[in-house]
Amino acid sequence: MSLTREDVTYVANLARLEFSEDEVIALADQLGAVLDYAETLSGLDTSKIKATEHVLAVQNVFRADEIESCLTNEEALANAPESEAGCFKVPRVME
């Protein structure tokens, strides 16, 4: 299978990336090649195989409900590209 330019554009939007026309064409090619390679997987019957989400059988790892110290407002915002009134700032959101 190969990837269409529409596929690339759709996925780019999902990933909040944008590409030039040329990049879209190149990506369709490059990703298509990787996906074609991955097609070998379809030759393997996995219908009765459980997916492995964790390689080790660790379960029930919990934390006690106890308060620990927080960052100060200054520390929280120290890396922010833009802030105002103790908050992170973004372009106006309508929704």
């Binding site: 927080c70 100060t72 407002n73 929280a76 915002l77 103790g86 992170f88």
Partner: peptide, 16 residues
Amino acid sequence: SCPTEFGQDENTHTCP
């Protein structure tokens, strides 16, 4: 382990 308390000053109950 940040507190859930409501109505605090903005961005004072945060951690990495």
